[in-house]
Write a protein that binds this DNA or RNA. Structure first.
Lengths: 248, 248
DNA sequence: CCCCGTCCTTGATCAAGATCAAACGGCACC
DNA sequence: GGTGCCGTTTGATCTTGATCAAGGACGGGG
């Protein structure tokens, strides 16, 4: 557990912003009550480590706000991000008490934590939760497989374009009604974290961002705010078949 | 569904070789009976496609014997394998009726298929099955994350060594009591399929196999049979921390 | 205001792996 | 016993992205 996490007061599940997408989305009143009993909120600042790989992890959690990353590090320092957790995503494995990956906050993050043991027990009793967790895990596996295609076969430019598309899709506050031409959003990651996500170096990320800007695919205001004047143009750069999975 | 799959007679679950590892591993007598009712066996020859991405898929299945692969293909033909299914692994997504990936037999394969609808229903009724499926899916997600590290950050030589280690671990008939020095096994994949797995070209795979042979890390008898005289040497080539996850 | 640190950009060079090309070995089939 | 095919090996060359190296932009603290 990180040194300087901040405990913050619980909010009611009923007024939770991620209520409709998280593990708890299918829960009915009494199930929510059970969850309320074992939950607590915790906040982390951008850059903080939430848990180190190998550490005991006595909770699982839902990301309420902000972005967290799972990364793996090799002995010689090579790093690969293997999970990017956006609001409503689930952290941790109910039946495992050691973290398998480093978990870090790439922006300020608030987690809704559930004590692990009671949560695991609850999984056995409330099929709604375990069914939802299975569904979310399968979705995550699909996302991991997209990501594998990106890592194994895409060019640097395609990787950047794909990454920006993903953020544009999930990052904007869902006001992008499929096919909206223009989208804008903030990058919740440094260039280095993007490189770790994409299997590139930070220099290559920077160069390709500049190239996409030069070519008018994106506009930058500051270093972290991205404007995509035309999503179709960006999607064309991803290497995925036109509008294939991205917009629909 | 493939053109020329072979229907073969059912065997009893009780005498099934993958009984102890598959989705059904936790089932008790009556649950097995329910499964028996909706299952049928199907065989495919090496190279055959089991389903194409986008095809209707009216079953889910366990791999009984042989090896199957999930692959994604880009418009211009670039291909990435995103799943390698060994005996006891699960194929398909219970609540999705279209295949998301091409599924092909990389060696002769026998599947134990369950009709999708009844299986999905059974998931809701028998928590043993859905719990086991969640566990298997989480394991697969972990494997996918290992794989992402491989694709994003490992050198060609490390990729090959890692791949061989994985096969050595799961491919041998579990007679390798952790840390056995010498291991041998057959490659169930062509060089091209290995390339698709590893995000390389088949030429690079071939060259690195030759290099590992030249360096005495492996011995080949024929092109498909691999002998690893000393697993520790192979593991040293994977880039993973010494004996870290592989042997223990 | 300046100093320093962090994050980012840009340039020059290098190397790993891709690409293009040829040929080999084993096997099935005539 | 050829002939042809498939999977594989090996060689020569090219390209992409890594690496090495400076310097710029921004922000916070003295």
């Amino acid at each position: 557990m990180s040194v300087s996490a901040t405990d913050i007061p619980n909010i009611k599940c009923s007024s939770c912003p991620i209520r409709h997408r998280a593990v708890c989305s299918r829960c009915e009143a009494e199930e929510l009550d059970a969850l309320e009993k074992i939950k607590y909120y915790k906040s982390f600042e951008a850059g903080q480590t939430i848990v180190w790989a190998g550490d005991k992890m006595d909770f699982v959690a839902s990301v309420v706000s902000g972005v967290a990353a799972l990364t793996q590090t090799m002995e010689d320092g090579r790093r690969q991000m293997v999970g990017l957790l956006l609001p409503s995503d689930f952290v941790g494995r109910p039946n495992r008490d050691e973290a398998a990956y480093d978990v870090t906050a790439t922006s300020d993050v608030t987690l809704c934590c559930f004590r692990r043991k009671p949560f695991h027990k609850l999984l056995e009793d409330t099929p709604h939760v375990s069914q939802r967790l299975l569904e979310m895990t399968l979705d995550e596996l699909d996302a991991a497989r997209e990501w594998m295609l990106l890592l194994g076969r895409k060019t640097a430019r395609e990787k950047i374009a794909s990454f920006l598309s993903i953020l544009a899709r999930r990052g904007t506050t869902e006001n992008n009604l499929a096919g909206l031409d223009s989208v804008e959003f903030d990058l919740p990651l440094t260039r280095e974290a993007m490189a770790d996500y994409l299997g590139l170096t930070l220099e290559t990320v920077s160069r390709q961002m500049s190239a996409l800007k030069r070519d008018g695919v994106i506009t930058l205001s500051g270093k972290r705010h991205v404007i995509v004047p035309d999503m179709h143009i960006l999607l064309n750069e991803t290497g995925d078949d036109a509008d294939g999975g991205m917009l629909v």
